[in-house]
Design a protein around this nucleic acid. Structure first.
Lengths: 224, 224
DNA sequence: TGGATATGACCTTGGAGTAAGTTACCTCAA
DNA sequence: TTGAGGTAACTTACTCCAAGGTCATATCCA
């Protein structure tokens, strides 16, 4: 017989799909879409390449399924935290705490969400837009509250701070993933100390005041 | 004659190399190493692919040259700022200001520096290690001063804050690149306001309080 | 016995890298 | 001044390969 290993092994489609999806999440999340190979994922899942194509259609289809799984998991957690009644910095800390706990068993989901090598058109782009919106909305909301708390009402300031906040979350999670052995709880505490440190160090200093830059704020009278 | 366009155009090697390098910086910085094609860069530079290989040896060699150019430009600017006598948050703002000004004419250099699709071995990896060290050293130094200022002496805290700081710089520059028309000076001012906002919003709230983290500073806090 | 599960071997393509030839400029002897 | 030979600049037209995707076939269960 020419195809020695061919033929069903009696594993139902749903089970195989899950098995493939798990392998795909880890590979895509670890190496990124571009560097991942379908053959490699199939091997990791313990099956052959054509089966992946039969169930997911294409590399992009497989990535889409992985992305949706990861994004849904994380977005749901962030939304859960958003419904509690904390505001400002405290809300930020709760969000981080939730993410650390959610990511503990499958840390690669985080990178999956922000994979820069993923296709930037088609269904993947659409899915990413959906989840980016969902997540960004939460960040915008949180940052908005914080800005109101503090009296800065420049919408571009809020936009920039949102970007910084999301990036800081990314950095903290990445740092955490690089320091195995640190528990989510320890990490959350660390984040708290860091915020205090930043806050304590901010000085009302005047800048070189080059060009026509209006003298910035004086500490309590925020915003000129 | 079979090769219609063949033959020298009398452009000296140094000139061509520069011309190719410029095109390469823009393409690599915009699309990333993986998605960039040597043929495309050659076309942008107005010459043919083999000439690129003759001058730079390989795609990796071309990237290396581009990377070195960009990294040197940016590292030099950051080091220049580091020699002035500002500390803590002020020093951070000066760094940002210097970067905005340096990047204004060739914004893509920034992405070049952190391209995740660049090869992670060989000469490129070595060069990246060199520049990452140089830049990280500055960040570590700045963050170290800040932590001392504030009384937090946990080295892991400093390490994490360094990561956050570098990531925040990245986020601010990315945000800026997405908002054309904002001048470096305006951007620097915005950064100043944002720091004040964060600082003003931070609350000395008590967390679960696990482990023996030293209770940091009290700050004359705005915000309960 | 038909349909779901499964695979080895193949086809295809895009892009890195190369071989071999073409043209222009430069130098120096006569 | 001139023109022959050497060298640097430059291109067309390939080869090669990794990885996405397909086809024809095999096995098993209801």
């Amino acid at each position: 017989m020419s195809r020695a290993n061919a033929g069903t092994k009696g594993v139902p489609r749903a089970d195989r799909e899950l098995q493939i999806l798990r392998a795909a999440c880890e590979v895509f999340g670890t190496m990124g879409f571009a560097k991942a190979s379908v053959a490699g994922i199939a091997a990791d899942a313990g099956i052959s390449k054509p089966l992946v194509y039969q169930y997911f259609g294409s590399k992009e289809g497989l990535f889409l399924a992985s992305f949706n799984y990861g994004a849904e998991t994380l977005a749901a957690e962030m939304e859960r935290v958003a419904t509690d009644d904390s505001v400002g910095v405290e809300r930020g800390l709760h969000t981080l705490d939730g993410l650390f706990r959610t990511l503990e068993p499958q840390p690669w989901l985080w990178r999956l969400l922000f994979d820069p090598s993923a296709p930037d058109d088609g269904e993947v782009a659409a899915a990413r837009a959906v989840y980016t919106d969902r997540i960004t909305r939460l960040a915008v909301e949180g940052v908005g509250e914080l800005m109101r708390l503090v009296g800065d009402d420049d919408p571009l300031d809020a936009s920039a701070l949102t970007a910084v906040w999301m990036s800081a979350v990314d950095a903290l999670i990445t740092w955490w993933l690089d320091h195995p052995g640190v528990t989510p709880a320890q990490m959350t505490e660390r984040c708290h100390r860091l915020i205090i440190a930043i806050s304590g160090a901010a000085l009302p200093a005047e800048l070189p005041a080059e060009g026509g830059a209006p003298r910035p704020v004086e500490r309590s009278s925020l915003r000129a």
